[in-house]
């Protein structure tokens, strides 16, 4: 069977729908993974071991196991304890949690890396603890973390393809639908790869832009 890429336009609508869901899934997960990352980082910097301990357990488990397994756990596991989630929500939760753990690690080390003198200086000019964090420490930390967090976002976009295994109609599963109709796996996986590549380039452009902007806080 030869290759015939002219078949792709007739399935364009299904690919566009898939792309839409991949973008929605990734955007939501990136947002929640950042929020979760900040939250986990703050928890991990807490003075009390009893607060830190449960998070360390989760982080250890989520960093040591594949995302695919975590997807199964969240999708099938929550059903077992009576929470019936649709696949999309389960996918967002799994992706967000998985990447929040990695983001937390990055954010935590960036906050720690800001010189202690900065904090002491801001306190001694009369800023409160919260103000010092918000106006002095975090802006500097952000400049340090942007490249690493950007790489995580790019990774998240690619890993979002795994969500197809629990039945979310994102780009990967949409191309599989097109394939089961047309019996042309090669063409459609190339098409899907090309779309992912373009999305990735866009995201990378955005990340580099953000890097340049945040660099002025350095």
């Amino acid at each position: 069977m030869g290759l015939d890429f002219t078949i792709i336009p007739s399935y364009l609508d299904i690919l566009i729908t898939g792309t839409y869901w991949t973008v929605a899934l990734s955007t939501l997960s990136i947002f929640f993974s950042l929020v979760g990352g900040v939250f986990f980082a703050v928890v991990q910097l807490n003075r009390h071991a009893i607060v830190r301990w449960p998070f360390s357990g989760i982080a250890w488990l989520f960093m040591g196991t594949p995302l695919l397994l975590q997807l199964f756990l969240i999708y099938f596991g929550l059903v077992q304890i009576g929470i019936d989630l649709n696949a999309f929500t389960a996918g967002v939760i799994a992706l967000s949690l998985h990447f929040a753990v990695y983001n937390a690690d990055i954010i935590k080390s960036a906050i720690v890396a800001v010189d202690k003198g900065q904090y002491e200086a801001s306190r001694s000019v009369g800023l409160s603890q919260l103000q010092a964090m918000r106006k002095v420490i975090v802006p500097q930390a952000i400049a340090n973390v942007t490249p690493a967090l950007g790489n995580m976002m790019i990774a998240l976009l690619k890993e979002s393809s795994l969500v197809s295994v629990i039945g979310v109609m994102e780009l990967t599963l949409s191309s599989q639908r097109a394939i089961s109709d047309s019996f042309r796996p090669f063409e459609f996986y190339i098409a899907a790869a090309a779309i992912y590549y373009i999305l990735n380039l866009g995201l990378e452009y955005g990340v580099r832009n953000a890097e340049r902007r945040s660099a002025r806080y350095r």
């Binding site: 979002s160 393809s161 795994l162 197809s164 990967t172 996986y189 992912y196 590549y197 990735n200 380039l201």
Partner: peptide, 22 residues
């Protein structure tokens, strides 16, 4: 650039399901 820019899952499917076509 290509292999870091696209999902590993797609690459795997392309090789396994699309491979026989070529």
């Amino acid at each position: 650039s290509v292999f870091r820019g696209t999902p590993a899952l797609i690459q795997l499917f392309l090789l396994y399901f699309g491979g026989p076509q070529v």
